[in-house]
Design a protein around this nucleic acid. Structure first.
Length: 473
RNA sequence: GGUCCCGUCGUCCAGAGGCCCAGGACGCCGGCCUUUCAAGCCGGAAACGCCGGUUCGAAUCCGGUCGGGACUGCCA
């Protein structure tokens, strides 16, 4: 039997990192088993569903590299893979359920139902205990599934093991609303049957609904798929992941300059690992070893700091040409204009040094702005810390003459010339080089000094040293 | 309130009765390297929620307890 798994986002919001991880695990499971990964759109909620959200979700999934084999945009033998196109089918099957005696019409008023519920709660019982088929069944209204009371519902969860639910704790839930539209339970269950889904891996929040889906599937005359309920994602404080923990939309990470392969790796490590030692691994390695049964049962905290560290690992592991190419947009963004071919050549000279100290791509742009824009002043802290010291003026002057007399202009020559300064001035290396750094780059924090000066060029380097000398008064 | 799920360092993961006075990673602390910032290297602090039981032996099995979470809609 080939594995067929699906992801079924509702286009009513952005792709949440938790949903992204669920998608990732489904994808990994399909790839590991050489199965089929299906993408379906659960857009029964026409009010809240939008094309923009759908585009955003699909774009995010593609960005992560989780291509799907069947479904929206990819085609397949099951039509549009959009629930909004299948409303008639859901309604027809719901009515069939009434005919076969598995379901019944219910036209009781909301207030009446509410009364039954609060009564059940008052008595410490499950609402299902009261929301049952009335003696007098209606001939119209919503359609509820009738839960057989003589049998406990049992099924196996790949992650949690054998689970069982007492029928009294399952209410006769609505499958078709009185307006004829299906509930999530109905549409999702029918789709899983029609699309021949073999494994349903979803968030643990759906676990309490699973016995309903099992019963519904059986009432429809089929065997239920294998379920796997993934632990939910939390913040590092143990509270459910929300805005106050930072961005929860995957696109926010994309825009912040995270690499898709790093996000992929990080999401995978939330609730799973290939072994006890490995933290960084390729998608091929993940595919080779992934299995749903190995997924952790307890909730995982999404830690942006660890993600950032991991992103740095991926940035540094990147091929230098690729790195230089990928940060171009960020460099131009930081500089505020497009760069010329010559400027790119300059940039490429120090790109390897920038790469080493980059965690997020946009930071890389910040590191090189000094090369392509005029210095608009100095970083205040840097100035106070290094430029207000005794002897800074002499250092700058020595630097100016050392560079002016240079025959050749490259990092090595610049280094040779400047290395001689500390001894000549009777100062420590730091006392000599830091003032030069601040003068040339505007900050006490920058890429390595000699390479920076070499890349800046003789004329502009000396200009900046003179400018700083002037600022000193 | 009820049903269900979960419980190893601050965080993620490893551990499926002796290999564990618990291992790897992020973060943190200290050191080395060093002209800055990173990176790298070395070292350190840091956990089996609690109580019983089973067993020669328990992080691993059982029970209870406490704590956290999800669900409890004609939302998904």
């Amino acid at each position: 039997m080939t594995v067929r798994v699906r992801m079924a986002p509702s286009p009513t919001g952005y792709l949440h990192v938790g949903t992204a991880r669920t998608t990732l695990f489904n994808w990994l499971y399909a790839r590991h088993n050489r199965g089929t990964f299906i993408l379906r759109i659960d857009d029964t909620d026409q009010e809240r569903s939008t094309q923009d959200f759908e585009d955003e979700i699909l774009g995010s999934i593609r960005w992560l590299g989780l291509e799907w084999d069947e479904g929206v945009g990819a085609g397949g033998p099951h039509g549009t893979y959009r629930q909004s196109a299948r409303l008639d089918r859901y309604a027809a099957l719901a009515r069939g359920l009434v005919e076969s005696g598995h379901a019944y019409y219910d036209d009781r008023a909301p207030e009446e139902l509410e009364g039954l519920r609060s009564q059940a709660q008052k008595e410490g019982k499950h609402p299902g205990h009261y929301i049952r088929r009335p003696a007098e069944v209606a001939t119209s209204g919503a359609i509820r599934l009738s839960i057989p009371q003589d049998e406990t519902v049992e099924f196996t969860d790949l992650i949690r093991g054998d689970l069982s639910f007492a029928p009294a704790d399952i209410d006769d839930f609505v499958v078709l609303r009185s307006n004829g539209t299906p509930t999530y339970h109905l549409a999702s269950t029918i789709d899983d049957i029609d699309y021949e889904i073999t494994h349903v891996a979803r968030g643990e929040d759906l676990l309490p609904s699973t016995p309903k889906h099992v019963l519904l599937t059986r009432a429809l005359g089929h065997d239920e798929p294998v379920y796997a309920h993934l632990p939910l994602l939390f913040g590092t404080d143990g509270k459910p992941l929300s805005k106050r923990h930072g961005a929860t939309a995957l696109t926010a990470y994309r825009e912040a300059g995270f690499l898709p392969e790093a996000v992929f790796n990080y999401l995978a490590i939330l609730g799973w690992s290939p072994d006890g030692e490995t933290t960084i691994f390729s998608r091929e390695q993940a595919i080779a070893t992934f299995d749903l049964v190995d997924v952790s049962r307890n909730p995982a905290a999404f830690d942006p700091e660890k993600l950032a560290w991991m992103n740095g690992e991926y940035v540094r592991a990147m091929d230098i040409v690729e790195f230089a190419t990928r940060i171009r947009p960020h460099v131009e963004e930081a500089v505020g204009r497009e760069l010329s071919g010559g400027e790119w050549a300059t940039f490429n000279e120090i790109a390897p040094l920038v790469q080493e100290r980059t965690k997020l791509l946009p930071e890389a742009g910040q590191q090189v702005v000094f090369l392509f824009t005029d210095l608009e002043g100095y970083d205040e802290q840097s100035w106070d810390k290094v430029m207000t010291k005794e002897g800074v003026g002499e250092v700058l002057e020595a630097g100016i003459s050392a560079l002016t007399d240079l025959d050749r202009w490259d990092a090595g020559s610049v280094e040779d010339a400047l290395r001689a300064l500390p001894a000549r001035l009777g100062l420590g290396a730091g006392k000599t080089f830091q003032p030069l750094r601040v003068a040339v780059t505007g900050s006490a924090v920058s890429p390595p000094l000699f390479e920076s000066i070499a890349a800046l060029g003789r004329e502009r380097s000396i200009e900046r040293l003179q400018q700083a000398r002037k600022e000193l008064g």
